[in-house]
Design a protein around this nucleic acid. Sequence first.
DNA 1: GGTATATTTGCACAAATGTGCAATAATTAG
DNA 2: CTAATTATTGCACATTTGTGCAAATATACC
Lengths: 95, 95
Amino acid sequence: MNSTKRQETADFLKALGEYNRLSLVNELCQCNAPQNAMCLCDCCSVDSSVVSRHLKVLTQEGVVRMERKGRERVYSLNRSEIARKLRSLADQIEG
Amino acid sequence: MNSTKRQETADFLKALGEYNRLSLVNELCQCNAPQNAMCLCDCCSVDSSVVSRHLKVLTQEGVVRMERKGRERVYSLNRSEIARKLRSLADQIEG
DNA sequence: GGTATATTTGCACAAATGTGCAATAATTAG
DNA sequence: CTAATTATTGCACATTTGTGCAAATATACC
């Protein structure tokens, strides 16, 4: 694994490796329909601005994707992409 | 996923989600024989004390295991455990 | 036992990170 | 157009984190 790939992997894992962000992921995991930020606020007891920032990080790392819907922005989980990355790493480590 | 499990998962991912720590993991991944800290120093250009601290984090999170060997302490990767955790998370997320 | 080697720890510090509040921006509904 | 709702951003702040150096500790080798 070269250094660029290593940095990307680290960033991805870091995005998931924070309690409130993982709570957001967990919440989205249980929802079939995309959720807006206000709704997601409920699962982790932090300010809406904090949720906004966490969602930004998760979006940048490809963990979630955003769609405009009315005046809301709804988020959903990139399930298969996350799973693929995690499994790929598992495969590499198990060798 | 309950909050305790979520915290554990976050800690595990955080341990892997740092560039130099991931470099150590990568290095150990390519070695069949366990490596000591001095040797592992070479793969990430930081002080040996820093390597020592990173290895402590990785040990606490079950990523690596340590064995005394002479006056050295040699580390090896808990390959199957890491892979199991990553795949378990992947499964959960893919639903 | 004394010395060399390996590792950890104490200290200091800079940078990154998570957080809340208030203000702002963006967008829709009426 | 105006008002309401939703989301983001600027600012401040405390905490965490990664880091290096030097000292201390541990352990084996001679």
